[in-house]
Design a binder for these strands. Structure first.
Lengths: 110, 110
DNA sequence: GCTTTAATGTACACATTGTAGGCATTCAAA
DNA sequence: TTTGAATGCCTACAATGTGTACATTAAAGC
């Protein structure tokens, strides 16, 4: 059988959020994106630890923004999804899709 | 914001497998269903512990098959997905769907 | 200048889920 | 009566999920 390195549920959300946001993806907007789209509350810590772990696994790449940010705070850390991250997402999606096939009617379409 | 009791990735697969199988869902076929549909290997232990936990959370209901099975082995334990289980699945799916919206093209449709 | 506030990130701790391996039970078949 | 197959259960450990508290930086207020 194939790869079998599944990623977790929240990890998927974080990867997808970064893709949605594009160039300007860093912690704060990632959190906001997930909250807005899924309507469920997300703590800041959850986002940052997950970002860290995804980077360790090579699914994300990160770099620090300008060392002297205009507005405030620590330098932003930006993220980009690596190829392996895309693959992982596709695999998760494909697995779920196979499992769902035919059930939409049973459960009432939505 | 809403419910926020997300279920894990593998938990989703197990719930969906039971729905796919229908009346005769017990450990062995659940495992087989997931392996066949997703193409990834699943250990027996993983299935049973997950079934247990889902039942504890009230997402599944179980009962033992006939105390004197014709063929062999311990009595089978059958499972049925509870309403809460359906809800959890729908919520997970809806969250992922929102997050995916618009990305299919970016990532190459599949 | 000094303090406060806002925007960020980092560190750590703990709970929940994921996953595997091995043991137990039961019955048929050898 | 021993062996084998089908099944479930137990237990341990790894990976993920999630929150709280702390640190850093610069603007804004005083």
């Amino acid at each position: 059988m194939g790869d079998h390195t599944p990623i977790g549920e929240f990890e998927q959300l974080v990867l997808l959020a970064i893709l949605q946001i594009g160039d300007t993806a860093y912690g704060v907007p990632v959190r906001r994106e997930i909250e807005h789209r899924t309507g469920r509350p997300v703590s800041r810590g959850a986002v940052y630890t997950t970002l860290d772990r995804l980077e360790s696994k090579g699914l994300l790449e990160s770099w620090l923004g300008e060392p002297t940010p205009e507005r405030s705070g620590k330098a932003k850390r930006f993220y980009r999804v690596e190829h392996a991250g895309i693959d992982a997402l596709k695999e998760s999606r494909s697995a779920l899709r196979s499992m769902w096939t035919g059930l939409e009617t049973v459960l009432g379409e939505l």
